[in-house]
Simulated assay, not measured.
Amino acid sequence: MLTGYREKITSDRKRVYHCAMCMDILYFLGYDIDEQLPLHSTISRTRQLHPATVFESIFNKTFALFVDKGMVRGHTQAMDLAPGLL
C-alpha cells in the first residue's frame, strides 16, 4: 500500500505488478526476485475485512517511523536507482 501511495497507484492489480517489477521494492518487502507476490485479490479481500481506520492507522504509524528515522523530510521526493540499473 505504501508503494501505491508513493507512486499514486490506486489499483491493487497495478500495485502488485509494479512491486513485482521493481527489485528495490521486492528487497524491501523481503521477497526473492523469482518469488510470487500475493494475488491482487488477497489485498482487496484483506482491505474489505477491516475498516479503513485500521489501514490509516498502520500507514500513519509507518510514515511516522520513516520521519523519526530521517528517511522523510520536507516537501521534495527523490528516488535513487540501484547500481547497475542505468
Rank of each mutant, 00 (worst) to 15 (best):
M1R: 11
M1F: 09
M1G: 13
L2A: 14
T3N: 10
G4P: 02
Y5G: 11
Y5I: 14
R6Q: 13
E7K: 14
E7A: 15
K8M: 12
K8Q: 14
K8D: 11
K8F: 11
K8R: 15
I9A: 10
T10M: 09
S11T: 12
S11Q: 06
S11A: 12
D12M: 13
D12Q: 10
D12C: 12
K14W: 01
K14G: 02
K14M: 11
K14H: 08
R15M: 15
Y17P: 00
C19T: 08
C19R: 12
A20D: 08
A20V: 01
M21A: 14
M21K: 14
C22E: 12
C22M: 08
M23G: 07
M23Y: 01
D24S: 14
D24P: 06
D24F: 01
I25W: 07
I25Y: 04
L26A: 12
Y27K: 13
F28L: 11
F28T: 13
F28N: 07
L29C: 15
G30R: 11
G30D: 10
G30M: 15
G30Y: 08
Y31C: 04
D32C: 02
D32Y: 03
I33W: 09
D34K: 06
D34G: 04
E35G: 04
Q36H: 09
Q36Y: 04
L37C: 06
P38L: 05
L39E: 07
L39N: 07
L39I: 07
L39P: 01
H40F: 11
T42I: 10
T42N: 02
T42W: 02
I43L: 13
I43F: 10
I43H: 01
S44H: 08
S44G: 05
R45W: 02
R45K: 10
R45F: 03
R45M: 07
R47G: 03
R47I: 08
Q48P: 00
H50C: 10
T53W: 02
T53F: 04
V54F: 12
F55G: 09
F55A: 08
E56I: 05
E56Y: 00
S57V: 02
S57M: 09
S57A: 14
I58R: 03
K61A: 12
T62M: 12
T62S: 07
T62L: 13
F63Q: 03
F63C: 05
L65C: 04
L65T: 05
F66P: 00
V67M: 01
D68N: 09
D68E: 11
D68S: 14
G70N: 06
G70Q: 03
G70M: 07
G70P: 05
M71H: 11
V72W: 01
R73H: 00
R73L: 01
G74V: 03
G74D: 02
G74A: 00
H75N: 13
H75D: 09
H75P: 00
T76R: 14
Q77L: 13
A78W: 00
M79W: 06
D80F: 11
D80I: 15
D80L: 15
D80T: 14
D80H: 11
D80N: 14
A82G: 10
A82F: 13
P83D: 06
P83Y: 01
G84I: 06
L85V: 12
L85S: 11
L86R: 07
L86G: 03
